[in-house]
C-alpha cells in the first residue's frame, strides 16, 4: 500500500466573494522510499498540496490517507500528532527559533512527543552529527551560515525519525553551491530509504528527484519518472559539483 494516497482532493478558498480553487481533483500516490519533486510555477497550488500532504491543512473534499491514516477530516490535535510522528519539514526560510541553540532547535519536535530530556539530548546530538554540524551544537542560528541553518533544519526534520520529509524550496535562500550540498544530503537520505517530497518551482532542482509531479492551476499535468521522461539526460549544473 502506498505511503501517501490522495483521492479526488480539492481545496477551495473564498477570498471576499471570489472562490479560488487551489487544488482541483488531485489523485496521487507516493510509495515508501520514493524521492519525488512537486514542481509548478507560483500560484499553481503546489504549496497547498504540500500543506495537505504534510498535515498542515485539510482538504475541502476528497481523501488524504497518510501511512494508513485518513487525515482528511482529522482534528487539529490529530494532525499535530501526525506532523510530529510521521512528518519532517524543511522550509525555504529555515524557520529555526533564533533564541534557541542548534541542539535546542533540533530537540523541539521531541518536546512535543514527550521524550525524556536524556533521550532528546542524545538523539539531537546524533541528528546534528548526521548533518555534519557537530562543531556548532551550542551556537544559535544567527551565528550560522544559510547552508548550516538549513542543515540544522534537516536535522530537526530527521530527529523524530519520520516516514516522510517535505522540503519546500529548501535551496531557495541559498546560493547554488550551498544549495547543491543540501540537495546532495537529500539524495543521501533518499538512498538510505527515506521518503522525500521536494517542492520547487525550479526544473533544475526538480531534476534531482527521480520522479516529478508537475502541477498547474491546481491540477497534476505531468506525473512521470525523470529517467523515463529523459530529463535526466542533461545533468544540472548543481550536479556537476557533487
Amino acid at each position: 500500500m502506498a505511503l501517501i494516497e490522495l483521492t479526488d482532493v480539492t481545496k477551495r478558498y473564498t477570498v471576499g466573494a471570489q472562490e479560488i480553487r487551489a487544488l482541483d481533483g488531485i489523485n496521487l500516490k507516493i510509495d515508501r522510499g520514493e524521492y519525488c519533486a512537486i514542481i509548478g510555477p507560483s500560484g499553481s497550488g503546489k504549496s497547498t498540496l504540500m500543506h495537505l500532504l504534510g498535515c498542515l491543512d485539510t482538504p475541502t473534499t476528497g481523501r488524504v490517507v497518510i501511512d494508513g491514516v485518513d487525515v482528511s477530516r482529522a482534528s487539529d490535535g490529530r494532525l499535530a500528532e501526525m506532523r510530529n510522528e510521521k512528518i519532517g519539514f524543511v522550509f525555504q526560510a529555515f524557520n529555526l527559533l533564533p533564541k534557541f541553540t542548534v541542539l535546542d532547535n533540533v530537540e523541539l519536535p521531541m518536546i512535543y512527543s514527550g521524550k525524556s530530556a536524556k533521550e532528546r539530548r542524545a538523539r539531537a546530538i546524533a541528528a546534528v552529527e548526521r548533518v555534519g554540524l557537530s562543531e556548532r551544537m551550542k551556537n544559535t542560528p544567527l551565528q550560522l551560515s544559510g547552508g548550516q541553518m538549513q542543515r540544522v533544519a534537516i536535522a530537526r526534520a530527521l530527529v523524530n525519525d519520520p516516514k516522510i520529509i517535505f522540503a519546500d524550496e529548501p535551496t531557495g535562500n541559498l546560493d547554488s553551491k550551498t544549495g547543491a550540498t543540501i540537495l546532495a544530503l537529500f539524495r543521501e537520505l533518499s538512498e538510505q530509504g527515506r521518503t522525500i517530497v521536494l517542492v520547487t518551482h525550479d526544473n533544475e532542482i526538480a531534476a534531482n528527484a527521480p520522479r516529478r509531479i508537475v502541477i498547474r492551476d491546481g491540477r497534476i499535468v505531468q506525473n512521470a519518472d525523470n529517467w523515463h521522461s529523459g530529463l535526466r539526460a542533461a545533468p544540472s549544473p548543481q550536479e556537476a559539483h557533487t
Binding site: 504534510g54 498542515l56 487539529d76 490535535g77 499535530a80 500528532e81 506532523r83 510530529n84 510522528e85 519539514f89 522550509f91 524557520n95 529555526l96 527559533l97 523541539l108 519536535p109 512535543y112 512527543s113 530537526r156 523524530n160
Partner: peptide, 14 residues
Amino acid sequence: EIGVRRAVGAKGTH
C-alpha cells in the same frame, strides 16, 4: 515561532 512549533507537532493546546 508559533508556526514552527505547530509544524513540528505542537497542538493548539501546547
